[in-house]
């Protein structure tokens, strides 16, 4: 069950900053401590910058997520970019196509509790991550 989704279109660098701030604020107001809120912020920074660097357009959506008693934050990053040819490869440490250290996707996975990715070359990529309180 989810509620209160906030959606931020990612077209420029300032949108990346806005997405990060929105996610950190949402995490703080859900009661995540500072360290874990910044982990969520770092994951969102990674996802939003991926959209900005690799795709033309996309969005980040941030919403509260509930599963039974558990409450958390769910973030979806959707873009219409080139997609990822080899997902297994992209999820390995030190694989990079451009500009990052090649730790972005595996790093994002480690920062969050849940990580789902689907991608189709030529169509785009959708990554969904959650962190539970």
């Amino acid at each position: 069950m989810t509620s209160e989704a906030q959606r931020i279109e990612i077209e420029a660098e300032r949108d990346v900053r806005l997405a990060v701030r929105t996610a950190v604020d949402a995490a703080r107001s859900l009661g995540f401590d500072r360290t874990r809120s910044l982990m969520i912020g770092t994951a969102v920074s990674e996802l939003a910058r991926n959209i900005h660097v690799h795709a033309c357009q996309g969005y980040i959506s941030i919403e509260t997520s509930r599963r039974g008693e558990a409450i958390g934050l769910r973030i979806v990053a959707q873009d219409d970019g080139p997609g990822i040819e080899d997902l297994d490869l992209a999820l390995q440490d030190h694989y990079s196509t451009r500009r990052s250290l090649g730790i972005g996707l595996p790093g994002t996975k480690r920062l969050m509790d849940e990580f789902d990715i689907s991608s189709e070359p030529g169509k785009g990529t959708c990554i969904s991550v959650s962190k539970w309180k």
């Binding site: 500072r34 360290t35 910044l38 982990m39 770092t42 480690r110 920062l111």
Partner: peptide, 15 residues
């Protein structure tokens, strides 16, 4: 900052 260290560790092996 101490609050930032956990994220750096999760990001992975630093150069």
């Amino acid at each position: 900052r101490p609050e930032v260290v956990a994220s750096l560790v999760d990001l992975g092996t630093v150069s």
